[in-house]
């Protein structure tokens, strides 16, 4: 349907899915038509990077998932207060919590900022790797589609 007809229709009966599809098509057309200048591309890339570096929550990404299954990889700063000593162990846990925890906290606070930076860098790099893997996958699929007719198209259909 022509844009003007759609715009007229939406003035009385707006349809969210239809409008979103229309706007997404416009964005795609602009990308495909190469109408983004260098500045626009740089801006898009910078924003994309900032989103990826912020990253998904742990567990949402496939790479995080695989790393979780092969072992510990996240920085861990919380003290472990568990015990394997049964009833007597409770006394040890109590001592750890009441006596060891305050100085431990003090040390943790000193290293925490650096550890947090390292943790963030780890997560960001993983997110970037995953996004790049996705992009490569997408481009490879597109390349396959484009190259297929050249490889097996004309021979099979020609008499």
């Amino acid at each position: 349907m022509e844009t003007t007809i759609l715009l007229d229709k939406w003035k009385t009966a707006p349809d969210v899915d239809e409008i979103m599809a229309h706007l997404r098509k416009q964005i795609e057309e602009r990308h495909a038509g190469g109408r983004y200048g260098r500045d626009e591309l740089r801006r898009e890339t910078a924003l994309w990077l900032s989103e990826v570096m912020g990253g998904p929550a742990p567990g949402e990404s496939a790479l995080h998932h695989y790393l979780d299954t092969i072992g510990e990889w996240r920085m861990q700063l919380h003290p472990n207060f568990s015990t394997h000593r049964g009833r007597i162990g409770r006394l040890f846990v109590w001592l750890k919590k009441r006596v060891l925890h305050p100085p431990l906290r003090w040390i943790v606070e000193i290293v925490e900022v650096n550890a947090w930076r390292q943790d963030r860098l780890n997560i960001s790099l993983l997110n970037l790797l995953e996004e790049m893997a996705l992009e490569i996958g997408r481009l490879r699929a597109r390349l396959d589609r484009l190259e297929r007719p050249k490889i097996d198209g004309p021979d099979k259909t020609s008499p």
């Binding site: 707006p14 409008i19 416009q26």
Partner: peptide, 25 residues
């Protein structure tokens, strides 16, 4: 409307500011 990315944020915001009748609808 909703947006997932910066491009969609710009496109949806432009659309809503440019089309007051659809915005009101």
């Amino acid at each position: 409307l909703y947006y997932y990315s910066f491009a969609e944020f710009c496109e949806t915001l432009d659309f809503l500011l440019d089309n007051p009748e659809i915005r009101d609808a």
